[in-house]
Amino acid sequence: MIPLLVILGIVAVLVFIFIGIYNGLVRRRNQVKNAWAQIDVQLKRRYDLIPNLMETVKGYMTHERETLDSVTKARNLAQQVPGGDVGARSKAETELSSALSRLLVVVENYPDLKANQNFLALQEELASTENKISFSRQFYNDTVLRLNNQIQMFPSNVVAAITGFTAGDFFELTATAEREAPKVSF
């Protein structure tokens, strides 16, 4: 009788530990989802800002067709990537970031544009959106790291394997060489 009770007790404790770890994993996974939603909000905000920027810049930059087109193209491409595909999304967004930064570097050659109040406000918004993207990316990656640690470390890896948790993908913007600051030649 007593051995049976002991075994039952141990099983009960194990079940409780299992439930606790499982709930922890679910919480982490939801945090990752939430963090991803935060990035999404900022990326959408950037898509929305670009047409305004183009409208303002167009009148001044008559010789920069190519730069302007590349921004618009990169934006449209990025918008078409399906939301769940983290890898493809980071590549497209990197493309857009570098196209934008090329444009903002070229702006230096147009003093009239730099004096335009509307443009200045837009530039602040855009720069801040870039920051927000990078901060939300930072937060997302931290959250993914914590989820992945839990999935790979004992004892939570056992629970994760049984209940079918998969490691999250990092959102990298450093993958391509375009991370380097574009050079301006005069």
Binding site: A35, Q42, E124, E125, N131, S136, F139
Partner: peptide, 16 residues
């Protein structure tokens, strides 16, 4: 003060 507002929002995002 858009700049201040943006800085606070950036940190709100970074801190989660």
């Amino acid at each position: 003060h858009p700049r201040l507002f943006n800085v606070v929002e950036e940190m709100k995002i970074a801190s989660g």
